[in-house]
Write a protein that binds this DNA or RNA. Structure first.
Lengths: 213, 213
DNA sequence: GTCTTTCGCTACGGATCGTAGCGTAACCGC
DNA sequence: GCGGTTACGCTACGATCCGTAGCGAAAGAC
């Protein structure tokens, strides 16, 4: 489990004594997400989370050093839900990922938490690293997998230079995730199938242009 | 001035008595940006801002109801700096806007504040409206202007249906702003000229594909 | 059974919030 | 000038939340 893995920082390496309650971990993370939905980020208090989870506030601080890290772990799990299925074509694959990602961002706890954590990460390097490993890197894998499939189908050319290949993957990742996030959170409009279709058309058309160069 | 305009909500409509100090307005907004750079969002306190601005804390609360609204106003001004100059081609215009936007997001106060405010806006409709009018709508104008120029040059076709025209403009806006923001804040990598060139190539290529449909 | 660690609980100092009350300062109309 | 009106700075306050410390009890490891 991701959250457990990440929260084990302050744990004693020697395996003796009373073990930590795994149930408490999941209860805390669940309570955190629930509290985010109801209260939002700024009004979320550690005491409230502890009360909801049915644990003592001190237990909470024994596992997470700050509110930021707690929220990152609480939200990271959600992003594991996205999977890239082979739908037969690059266009269909992209549309699928876009809609899945949009569905995730449609949940109140996700949108609130993700943006709040990103905001804090602009001033906290450790937090940014945590976000990178817990969320971003894993999602970038989806782009790589989708490209692989498209190349196997002959829809995309194999990039000869590994440098440009990596740069293109990063670019595509930022365009997809960025556009969906911006549409959902800043423009505050729905990512429906029509939008996904239009966006995918734009992206696939652009990919052809990039490959030509 | 935008900030002043927006902060006049609680002011008495009758024009009598001692007027509000315009200097205090600018001093407060300046202090807010400075505090954001040094402290970040979560550790920003109203008392600290007041002290930096050389005003009483009560004065601050007389003008802004919450920390959120204050920060929106403090940051909104920055986004007015972006202008879209005619650089002769659609590609050059887009690259210019991308680099300007990236330069803005490179400032510590902008990245921190923008994301924090967006995060809060996911739970606060009034705040979202404020963001929309203060920041988003104005930027969307840049897209419209750029398209107009490209159409005049013959680089883009005139959309016959006003509905699709509006949808396309929104799409392009979300793609540009979203990709730049995501690259800068989530991926945490620089938007340099190389990246801008690659992104623009992708976008312009995609636009051609969209127009064909 | 003993040892070790976590647990829940209570209590605490410190910081910040947002508001109220007061006397003073600045501008308006007469 | 001179009341009327509003903004200002200042102080003080209750309320809330933070993060930590100290305690006895519980739960496994050996």
């Amino acid at each position: 489990m991701v959250a457990g893995m990440l929260s084990r920082r302050h744990v004693n390496p020697t395996r003796s004594g009373r073990p930590r309650s795994a149930a408490a971990d999941t209860a805390i993370l669940l309570a955190t997400r629930a509290a985010l939905v109801e209260l939002g980020w700024s009004k979320l208090s550690m005491g409230d989370v502890a009360a909801r989870a049915g644990v003592a506030k001190t237990t909470l601080y024994r596992r997470w050093a700050s509110k930021n890290e707690l929220v990152v772990d609480a939200v990271a799990v959600i992003f594991d839900e996205i999977e890239i299925h082979d739908r037969g074509s690059l266009t269909a694959d992209i549309e699928g990922v876009v809609l899945q990602f949009a569905a995730l961002l449609d949940r109140p706890e996700t949108k609130t938490a993700l943006m709040a954590v990103v905001a804090e990460s602009t001033r906290d390097d450790a937090l940014r690293d945590r976000i990178r490993t817990a969320i971003v890197d894993r999602q970038k894998g989806l782009v790589l997998k989708g490209r692989e499939r498209a190349q196997a189908r002959g829809e995309l050319a194999y990039e000869s230079d590994p440098g440009t290949a990596a740069r293109n993957a990063d670019l595509i990742f930022d365009v997809i995730a960025g556009a969906v996030v911006h549409r959902t959170l800043v423009s505050a409009e729905a990512v429906d199938e029509d939008w996904a279709r239009g966006f995918t058309m734009l992206l696939v058309g652009g990919l052809a242009a990039i490959q030509g160069s």
